[in-house]
Design a protein around this nucleic acid. Sequence first.
DNA 1: GGGAGGTGCTTCGAATTCGAAGCAAACATC
DNA 2: GATGTTTGCTTCGAATTCGAAGCACCTCCC
Lengths: 177, 177
Amino acid sequence: MTKPVFDRGPGLAPEQMSTYFALTEAVGLLQHHVEQQLRTDGDLSTVQFQILASLAAAGGRLTMTELADGVVYSRSGLTYQAGLLEKAGLITRGPSPDDERSILVTITDAGLARVRQVLPGHVEVAERLLFDPLSESDVARLGEIMTRVRDHMRAQPPRSAAPRKRRSAASEAAKGD
Amino acid sequence: MTKPVFDRGPGLAPEQMSTYFALTEAVGLLQHHVEQQLRTDGDLSTVQFQILASLAAAGGRLTMTELADGVVYSRSGLTYQAGLLEKAGLITRGPSPDDERSILVTITDAGLARVRQVLPGHVEVAERLLFDPLSESDVARLGEIMTRVRDHMRAQPPRSAAPRKRRSAASEAAKGD
DNA sequence: GGGAGGTGCTTCGAATTCGAAGCAAACATC
DNA sequence: GATGTTTGCTTCGAATTCGAAGCACCTCCC
């Protein structure tokens, strides 16, 4: 993953190439360690933590769709994980007053407690693996850059606007995304 | 995932917090799009692409362990994917002359062709989602930072040095990792 | 050179993942 | 206010994932 055969043709500049790979691998490693920590400290998967964290950040309750948009994840996977979290007593699910179709997910006290329980370790891992080798200025710049990138990506069609198959199979011909 | 309840206590500075979340989400989104592109353009999963790319980058052949170190992935998952790739004719597996236990994985011409086939689209996605909103200076800095972070993480005990259970259950007491 | 322990890889079962299909409520258009 | 379409969520089956356990080879050390 260092000196690709690929920098031929009109592709990414070498600088972009190595940036891309470094980014990918570093984040992959980080995620892996985080996964371990969350499992060890609080018996949570990363997704479960993200769900709980999103809820906490949002003030306690969100619909499934809002949750799906905050987490890079499939709808069905979310349903599955929400089921586990509910069974574990960390969230509750109830009908929405506004929209009969929606499900309102609410974090419980136990859920909040669990978040607080794993947070120190979580922070410690991020501190040790990610921020340790970075200066304040690095962090600032990195944050600024990634925020820009994230917002840019969010502007692209979001995952939850996924292609619900066209009405008829007839209009298939004009398919070109 | 924006204004956590969590910046309380001696944790990460707010700046670190938002940097961390932006990084995580942006890369998640990127991975998701890449996944789609690879599947569409060349019927490959990200892992499969990484395997092929690692092989190509390494000059054509690697052992399973070397491969595992280059990819953030479990050993058994690698075996599984290697099986699929072999069945698809994109790699071959053979014994190592040096070490009878090792398996030498070699990329085939078809494998190389497949990499070249998906590469333009891959590059296009990275270009559009990641690099589009970044200046040259951003890319340089980002690359420099992430390389530093990656190397720092690599220095931590690598994934493949995974804990082969202790010799006896007796020395369990002193477990604290 | 023989045994103990370490290493490289695969197999196994259980858990998680995804997309497609299904169901019901909401919305639009007439 | 009916009918067709869209939207929110779940269920389903198939594919992928992981860690633990297993097998075979290698290495160290007496």
